[in-house]
């Protein structure tokens, strides 16, 4: 049946159908409803007329306050836990941002920092997930015990078991793009790679070459008393991590940018990333999480929650996809 045949039938029968009134009124109300919502939002910013006082009880439509409020974990601060159990020992301090050089090299350093803190904007085409470098390297790559750039820079070239050959610093960064960022690496002479190397080099200004600095990588955690357990880890996660990373671990996005990164799933690091190893995740979590309260979880809790993360799906290791 087409509109035309229907129209012809209406012309022929000439019956006025009462349903038309209902349809017209209903349709008008739908349109009015759609217009009313934004209009009310605007109108309410102005003081309403005094006559607008609603009859008592109109606002109380059966919902108790707080019923749909997200669960907030209240925890009486335990003084022993509040203070960091240990202060981080470092034997090197990177120069302050104010000391960044000017000129072409200074621009490269600045771009490197911009890529590092906002990878999604400044190196978009090389990234296949929603992470930024700074998610795992806190403090724009400065924080000790959070794989700081100044401690990594002087340790390359180095042989790596991961790919069984000697890696330059550029190749090490390329690995981050391929695995942690689930993307593809910028070429060694690309603007992005030059910028990242420049930023790392500048942060390491004055640091010794080939010397393992305190604060490098994530501090290795001793084996836990009990075997890491994902079920216990789930409880740790819900009590300490879900607040920011979400109960589904998918992070928190605000106006298109992630404030808190996704920890698993398609928007997170892939199965070849260092962080996908339980021991690395446990070490990172113990030293750095929750943000600002590093070393507040017990070692067992860190191992358990890392095991829980490991039980979740993530993009596959790109090295394994083709061979098998």
């Amino acid at each position: 049946m087409s509109f035309r045949t229907w129209y012809e039938s209406q012309k022929q029968t000439r019956t006025f159908h009462p349903g038309w009134i209902v349809m017209a009124v209903g349709g008008a109300l739908v349109v009015a409803g759609i217009i009313a919502i934004p209009a009310t939002l605007v109108a309410e910013t102005a003081p309403p007329p005094a006559a607008a006082a609603p009859p008592a009880g109109i606002s109380d439509h059966g919902k108790a306050p707080g019923t749909d409020m997200p669960k907030v974990i209240e925890q009486t601060p335990d003084p022993a836990r509040l203070r960091n159990a240990k202060t981080i020992q470092v034997d090197f301090s990177p120069p302050p941002d104010e000391a960044m050089p000017t000129g072409e090299f200074g621009q490269a350093v600045r771009l490197g920092k911009a890529i590092f803190t906002d990878t999604q904007t400044y190196a978009r085409q090389y990234v296949g997930n929603k992470l930024n470098c700074v998610n795992c390297h806190l403090g724009a790559g400065r924080k000790a015990d959070s794989a700081p750039l100044w401690a990594a820079y002087g340790m390359f070239p180095a042989y790596r078991d991961k790919n069984k050959h000697v890696n330059t610093y550029e190749e090490r960064l390329a690995g981050c793009f391929r695995f942690s960022m689930n993307g593809k690496a910028p070429a060694p002479d690309s603007k992005e790679m030059v910028a990242l190397v420049s930023y790392s080099y500048w942060l390491a200004k004055g640091a010794p070459i080939g010397v393992e600095l305190k604060g490098r990588g994530y501090p290795t955690l001793p084996e836990p008393p009990q075997k890491p357990d994902a079920a216990r880890g789930k409880q740790v996660f819900e009590a300490n991590c879900a607040l920011c990373h979400g109960a589904d671990g998918q992070g928190t996005e605000m106006s298109g940018r992630y404030v808190f990164p996704p920890l698993w799933g398609k928007n997170s690091f892939n199965g070849g990333a260092g962080m996908s190893k339980v021991k690395n995740a446990a070490a990172f979590v113990h030293a750095n999480m929750p943000l600002g309260k590093g070393n507040s979880l017990s070692e067992q809790e860190a191992w358990d929650v890392a095991q829980y993360l490991d039980s979740k799906p993530r993009p596959p290791d790109p090295r394994k996809g083709k061979s098998s």
Binding site: P77, N240, L291, K293
Partner: peptide, 8 residues
Amino acid sequence: PLGLMQAV
């Protein structure tokens, strides 16, 4: 929550 603000 979690004493986060106090820790900062």
